[in-house]
Structure formats: structure tokens, C-alpha cells
Design a protein around this nucleic acid. Sequence first.
DNA 1: TTGACTGTTGTACT
DNA 2: AAGTACAACAGTCA
Length: 272
Amino acid sequence: MPELPEVEIRRQYLETSSLYQPISHIDVEDNKLLTTNYATLLTTLVDRQFIGTQRVGKNLFVLTDQPDVIVHMHFGMTGDLEYYHNSINRPRFARIVFEFENGFNLGFLCPRKFERVGLIDDIDTFLQRKKIGKDGLAITLEELTERVRRKKALIKPVLLDQNVVAGLGNWIVDEVLFQAYIHPEQRADTLADEQMSQLHDAFRFVLETAIRYEATYRDFPIGFLIHVREWDDSPYDDVEAHKFCPRCKTRIERSVIGGRTTFYCPEEQVLL
DNA sequence: TTGACTGTTGTACT
DNA sequence: AAGTACAACAGTCA
């Protein structure tokens, strides 16, 4: 479920599994998953090695031993990585496979085909072209305040906008707003200094916690709103407890804001 | 069988 | 210009 923390986990995974192994071939099941012509991808990357990684928001960049050859990966809603040895072990949905000379493979799993892989020659140029904002873990309070306050839209859609700040997705925006005691429908330009400060603190808290738990939501601390989603449709009785605010026990509200399913505590996240 | 879905992009309307 | 709403993408899963 690739929001910033999941992409960070995938970055670490690629970094520890797939560097310094010459690429012998790349198998692509569906060219629609590529943002670069398949023949170009092949001739450019065969005999190259991955030498490092970088992440900005939900974008993963894989550096190669040729400085102007960089692989860009976007995981869409369901993308994942799996490093495996024998082709018999090829994971389900490994629709793009980087085959290394040592017999190992890095599979890019694309269950829904919303994922994308392609070549770029410069990260900054790419980020500028796509207007990607500062990473959620790197943005300062001042930058966040400036970017949020010049928007009149609801705070939730604003935080979801990758041009404002990069890396937050639907689940994390809800969590961040919950931790910051801010209603998802408050107008972005009406946030007080104290709210901006709470918001910025919540960014770090939620993102760092998520990464620490390797983005496995069910392991998150009990004070996290995320659990109302996790067991929303569970058949078990004790699930009811998860439908209430972990702090004040009010029933969590579910609605659609900015076209996305939204959970919030109507008692603590008051509309100002 | 139906509906919902973590993301992004484009279009159309206001 | 900026905000809003919505569909489309293509598949899985409950």
C-alpha cells in the first residue's frame, strides 16, 4: 500500500538486495507499465548495475553505474518488490523482472497495473517537470505553512496534493490530521500557527512511526486512527472497539471528502 | 455478483 | 487561475 513509508521500505529492500549485480535481461509482461520504450530500456540497462537509491515522496529512484541512467519507479496503489532466485519462484504479479547475471531476480509486482517504471537522466529535472513538492519527512514548518496557507481548498485534498508536499496518501493524511486534532474539511488558508505546528509535528510522528513498524499498519500503536480501517469489515465481535476514537472513545465518523473515503473523530477534530 | 480500493491524470464545470 | 467533481485506468479481493 505504497504511501511514503511503504516506498521507503521498498527503497531499503532494493538497496539491501539488488545493488552491484550486472543486469542480464529485463522481462516485461505488459509494455503499458513502462514510461520508456522497451527496446531502449533493455539496451540502456543490460550490463549496467544498480548502485544506490533515492526516494522523494512516493517516487523511488534507482541509480546505476552510469550517472545519467536512473530508473524511476512508482508503485501506484499496490506495487511491491520481491527479490528471488529461481525463476520457478517468480512471484505472482511480477510483471517486470530485472534479471541479474548471478541468477537472482528483482521482481516489480504490479497486481493492478497502476504501477510505472521508466528511465530518466536527472532526478531534479524529473521532479521539476512533475512539480513534486518537498518530501514529507524533509519539509520544514516554514515551508509547509507557506505552501498550505496559499491554498483555499479543504486541508485534506491539499495534503493529498503531491505538489504541496510529497508522500502523503489517503490513509496517512487521515492519520496526520487525527494526530494534529484538525478537521479534514477545514480550509487550508485558515489554519492557525498552532495548528500548522501540530500538523508539522504529526507529519514526523506518523511517518517515522510508520517506517519504524515497516509500514505494517496492524502493528502500529493503539493510539493510531488507522486501526478503524484495518478491521472495518472484520467479522469478529471485538472489532467494535476499533471503531471508536482511541483517545476519547467517540464513534469515528466516516465520510467522503475530496472524493476519498475519510475517517475522523467528530469530537476532537472540530471544524473551525 | 457487486462494490470498494492505498494513486494519478485528464476533463469539464464553476 | 483555482477549486471542485468525477471518470478512467485494470485488476484484486471480500
